[in-house]
Design a protein around this nucleic acid. Structure first.
Length: 467
RNA sequence: GGGGCGUUCGUCUAGUGGUCAGGACAUUCGUCUUUCUAACGGAGAACACGGGUUCGAAUCCCGUACGCCCUACCA
């Protein structure tokens, strides 16, 4: 809450893939920091030993890299700071903001069960809250925060506004487990403080936690970060985005062929707006991104719009970068790597391929004529174009092509004149040409294909088809 | 049970007391074309509901409904 340089962080727990909703949270943190010359840190919340794996950590890091969300410094492992977390709990114990609780989990569960049955509050009130040290038994205990039970607390949130919470709704949360390990709620606050985090941007499922964590800041007299709790992303049916909506992991989106720039644009625009701007660059996003553009209601994920935005990005990404990303996409799907000839061909053809492709699988489909070798295999629709009549016209066209200079206008002239000689429209001739050149009926423009393929290959394919 | 948050076209959203409620995606119709998941043009489509406040409300207040989140010795 000062004019300290901005420090944000993304703090995933490595209990699964990089969820696309988490990725958006990361993106917002990244945008906010990068737009203000701040620092963007990454912290792996691996305090749940049973569910955290290093494989998952790797997957999350890979997802971040794919999305181009570069973080500053090394990723921090929360579990490595356990002793520091406990140290803070001890300090709170010493200054009277926490206490030892000897209630067993069975006792607490039993209490909650009866509370649920009686439909009364399930907030557990420990009987040990005010018991003095010399009356403590020699048994395992947890350290609990001593939460206020009177009054209310108002927290300012950059997205949610002022939110007020009655203090009697706050429980004496556990800080340190009976096995001596710190709990997430404590670890987050200590780490955020130690890392100098100035802005906590996270999902609004943490809003309630903010009030409990606030108590730790108070107890330690630490400067509090600015809060921004952003709404979650829902699936098309309005339920929290999950596996049954299809893909949730960032890697899956890469494998489906969405370019990272389109992904960033779409995810940024989902739940945030800057007037009517829909399509923007990273630079614009960084300049424009701010909390007041964030909406308060959850947004639904729409694959169609994502695809549309991606198409616009593919159209403007420069060829070298696009080829690089295409190669990475192919790798992610486990496809055969491109040969040198193939990637050279694609690079030459990219100018016409990228205009009609929204995602990489479409681009590969359009590039089919480049990827194949003679003799060209015909699919059913293409074969239908190669009648005896059309083949004879192709045979007639070939010598004209042999003498033509290989420019677009010449090629157009040659093909048009042959079509005219047979009293047919260009479209009639384009079908067979398409079939001969690509073996498909849906391809880029026939002239573009000729240009990309070059004179020799074009003529060879036409001869194959007309023989 | 308690608490918090939310609700503008199908979807993402603009909008902060006076707008024919705008844009985008999607849908649909059409044009063009050399195919298309391309391009271009047109159309339909929304302020959850009920009360207030006000000359005037999508915008402010109250209530209702619905949805979501939290309510762990998970994170």
């Amino acid at each position: 809450m000062s004019d300290r340089p901005v420090v944000t962080r993304f703090a995933p727990s490595p209990t699964g893939a990089l969820h696309i909703g988490s990725a958006r949270t990361a993106l917002f943190n990244w945008l906010y920091a990068r737009g203000r010359g701040g620092t963007f840190l990454l912290r792996i919340e691996d305090t749940d030993k049973a569910r955290s794996t290093s494989e998952n950590t790797q997957i999350i890091l890979d997802g971040m890299r794919w999305l181009g969300l570069d973080w500053d410094g090394e990723p921090i492992s929360q579990s490595a700071n356990a002793s520091r977390h406990v140290e803070v709990a001890q300090e709170m114990l010493a200054n009277g903001h926490a206490y030892k609780c000897f209630s067993t989990q069975d006792e607490i569960e039993a209490f909650r069960e009866t509370a649920r049955a009686a439909k009364t509050s399930t907030l557990f009130r420990s009987p040990w809250r005010d018991v003095s040290e010399d009356e403590h038994p020699d048994k395992p205990y947890v350290i609990r925060l001593k939460a206020p039970r009177e009054g209310q607390t108002t927290l300012h949130d950059e997205v949610q506004g002022d939110v007020t919470w009655a203090n009697d709704q706050l429980d004496d949360m556990v800080l340190v487990r009976s096995d001596g390990s710190p709990v997430y709620m404590l670890a987050v606050v200590v780490d955020d403080h130690d890392m100098g985090v100035t802005h906590v941007i996270r999902g609004d499922d943490h809003l309630a936690n903010a009030f409990r964590q606030n108590l730790i800041y108070d107890a330690m007299r630490w400067e509090k970060p600015t809060l921004a709790h952003i709404p979650l992303i829902f699936g098309p049916d309005g339920k929290k985005l999950s596996k049954r909506h299809g893909a949730t992991g960032a890697a899956e989106y890469q494998a489906m062929g969405y370019p990272a720039a389109g992904m960033r644009n779409y995810l940024t625009r989902l739940g945030w707006s800057h007037g009517d701007d829909e399509f923007f660059t990273d630079e614009q996003a960084r300049d424009w991104f701010d909390f007041d553009g964030i909406g308060k209601s959850p947004a639904r994920f729409d694959f169609k719009k994502l695809e549309n935005i991606c198409g616009q990005h593919i159209a403007v990404i420069d060829d070298a970068a696009l080829l690089k990303e295409l190669v990475e996409y192919l790798q992610a799907t486990g496809a055969e790597p491109l040969t040198t000839d193939q990637s050279d061909g694609i690079l030459r053809g990219l100018y016409c391929l990228k205009e009609r492709s929204k995602i990489f699988p479409q681009l590969i489909e359009k590039a089919h004529f480049i990827l194949i070798n003679r003799p060209v295999e015909l699919d059913e629709k293409a074969a239908a174009h190669l009648t005896n009549v059309s083949r004879s016209i192709l045979a007639e066209l070939t010598p004209h092509l042999q003498n033509a200079s290989w420019t677009r206008s010449t090629l157009e002239g040659v093909v048009a004149s042959v079509a005219e000689a047979h009293d047919m429209k260009l479209g009639k001739l384009a079908g067979p040409l398409r079939a001969a050149l690509a073996g498909r009926s849906v391809t880029p423009s026939v002239f573009d294909m000729m240009l990309v393929l070059g004179q020799d290959e074009t003529i060879a394919r036409l001869k194959d088809a007309s023989d």
